[in-house]
Design a protein around this nucleic acid. Structure first.
Lengths: 161, 161
DNA sequence: TCCCATTGCATAGATTTCTAAGTAATTATC
DNA sequence: GATAATTACTTAGAAATCTATGCAATGGGA
């Protein structure tokens, strides 16, 4: 979701009762998310890797040969999303899918040599983006940030409806 | 994008060289973003409003009668995205589109009475989610969080490629 | 005035993600 | 051992978003 959005126009006067977007944590998180995504997508595209594939590579580089369900859980996506991503990865020659031998319901996912070769360079891309995002922010502040954003996620994830 | 993702499976041992996802600011931001989205989507659905429409309502509740380009800029989306969102909002009876009188290229977007009536209740939804996300976090920490996440977004937005 | 660059919006097509519902393999129960 | 419940994956369809491109109205310069 590349292309940085048009620069935000000058905003009108605010009243508290209006609860303007840019003062809400949710919006700030959204903006940051989109900024990360945009850059990531641009930088991995030259390697023929899409954002949807990225998350799965990221997990498989650590643990190869997971089942699709395992993968879904670790990546944090629903299973149909995993199916779609894996289909494109198979077509791009990044993974092979192997029926489980003991349990033939399972489909195990293995990286190809090509995907393994990409690992170093692509992890470098991720590291660079992180470094660029964190530039000029004190280590103490980064630690605080991580703690707080994790707490927000926990707070929200605990809520069902 | 509702449905909280399957709880993350137990993760394997980490080596620094692996740069594991859950230690990256980008991933933490992504997780938080998805948590916000999920809850928002669930809570506005009963009002017949989708996430895609939400952002535009949010802006129009503050300033009605903007052109599509203005709207795109304020919401932070590309124009084709705006076209799609507005089409669905028109069909749902949330907006009217009026050709500009002075400049007939422009299409001005006006909220219907229905959309205006939803304002109070839906802003309440947003406030509630924010409050739930921020629960248990000190005000000082929230201020720090906002400052840091805004800095990250700026850092990334300044980068072209 | 006429042409052409610019501006504002729309269309086309791709990607990523979801929910809901379906199929096939396995396990549990009687 | 036959049937029912569960598990693992898949399909279908919708929504939100992007890039690239097209069209129509406007405005500036010859």
């Amino acid at each position: 979701m590349p292309q940085r959005a048009l620069s935000k126009a000058k905003l009108p006067p605010r009243r508290l009762s209006e609860f303007p977007p840019h003062l809400s944590s949710g919006y700030q998180v959204r903006d940051a998310h989109r900024a990360f995504q945009r850059l990531l997508e641009r930088r991995i595209a030259p390697f023929g890797v899409t954002r949807g594939q990225w998350y799965f590579l990221r997990v498989l580089w650590i643990t190869d040969g997971l089942s699709q369900r395992e993968l879904s859980a670790r990546v944090g996506m629903m299973e149909p999303t995993t199916v779609i991503a894996l289909r494109s990865m198979e077509k791009s020659g990044l993974i092979r899918r192997v029926r489980g031998d003991d349990d033939r319901r399972k489909v195990l996912v293995f990286l190809t040599a090509k995907a393994k070769r990409l690992r170093g360079e692509l992890l470098g891309v991720a590291r660079t983006i992180t470094a660029e995002a964190e530039e000029g922010i004190a280590l103490r502040d980064l630690a605080a940030f991580r703690r707080i954003v994790a707490r927000m996620t926990e707070n929200l994830d605990r809520i069902e409806r």
